[in-house]
Write a protein that binds this DNA or RNA. Sequence first.
DNA 1: GGATAACCTGACCAAATGGTCAAGATGTGT
DNA 2: ACACATCTTGACCATTTGGTCAGGTTATCC
Lengths: 226, 226
Amino acid sequence: MTILTPTEATQTRQRNEQRIFEAAECIFASHGYRGASVQAIAEEAGLPKSNVLYYVGSKRRLYVALLERMMARWNAMLDDISVEDDPAEVLEAFIHSKMELTRTHPQGSRLFAAEILQGAPFLQDYLRGELREWVQVRAEVFRQWADQGLMDPVDPVWLIFLIWSSTQHYADFEAQILGITDREALNEADYGRITAFLCRVILQGCGVTRRPEAALIEREGVKASR
Amino acid sequence: MTILTPTEATQTRQRNEQRIFEAAECIFASHGYRGASVQAIAEEAGLPKSNVLYYVGSKRRLYVALLERMMARWNAMLDDISVEDDPAEVLEAFIHSKMELTRTHPQGSRLFAAEILQGAPFLQDYLRGELREWVQVRAEVFRQWADQGLMDPVDPVWLIFLIWSSTQHYADFEAQILGITDREALNEADYGRITAFLCRVILQGCGVTRRPEAALIEREGVKASR
DNA sequence: GGATAACCTGACCAAATGGTCAAGATGTGT
DNA sequence: ACACATCTTGACCATTTGGTCAGGTTATCC
């Protein structure tokens, strides 16, 4: 007999949980918490309903676990920034990573959207805590960049929302985008072009100027130089 | 006895239908089609379930009616444009009216979002028909403006999506925005500032230059001048 | 004030909901 | 091969679902 620490799990468990999570993300994403049925999730996962409940305990627990997984992905994306960084580089990286999250995890993005749509009943604390803090810190840096004349004095919070919305859109409104552009799906190249478009418009729109001394060769010394 | 033409309706009917529509928009918006229950809508409207069904026939019919009402509002917002118009004015008006729709009909906007999130099962035809056509026409005009050097040669379709997403966001992600900014609600002044911010960033981001000859006094003669 | 259309609603229905459970099947370490 | 944990699942449960309907009340028009 093996004693399982909480983190390790049987191969069977791993395999089935993965199936269930994937299926559940899909179902919750398109129908929201209330609209999703355990039966539908089970069918999508190719397992009997009882088996799904055996692994996840309850619909609610499954939903929370999915939200947590998504928030972990989100957090993994959020780099630290400092006033000494190059605004253009930071904003570009910001747009890039948010778009990458949208591209690689569209279901998770939609799940998040559905949760917010219904008033964020499960994510209130996260929004008003961690995430608010995160935004405040970035906003302060943006403000200082504006003071230094490195970008226009736009409201940093709305700028962050602009980046979130314009990238998130390609997951949440995928059906609309595919319908209007008459396509089956967007490929990696499309996402590349869209990202470039957003970087261009947003950076130019905020009057972001590239720090002259931020050339690659002296990158290591940048922090000390100010 | 009065014979009612389809458009006129009893006072009672009008009053109750309005209540029901309002309540249903709210419930469908936050829980999606499947997640909304007729019972919940009835409670929100302050009527017994049977009465709701008496007026609207079925859940599905109610949902479709709400979508149609929302599409009507959307259409009312969509002005015609022509190559002779001033790009800056058109884009500003575009952003303004879309934001106004978001502000005055947040529930409807969220209802629309929920419908798209689940893959637009009821709006496929609208998206692939009317709306695609509408986008194509604007895109062509934007392209010609770019040819004339009135704006940067950005992809017009993505520009339209950028405007839709950045405005729509303030309805769909309201819970997130209020949570992060620590507010109870956004007021009219907030919306004004956000709209101004978006106009600034997007216009500047697309390098839109105001037509010099587009002054108000010669507005009437503009079409002939080209 | 009477006739008739519109409105109202509790009782009811089959189907689907989230969840439990007991009994058996399968794996795993020794 | 044995023991024991993990896994599997159909039967079952109370509750909720969208929807019907009969029998009533209210409004409106002549």
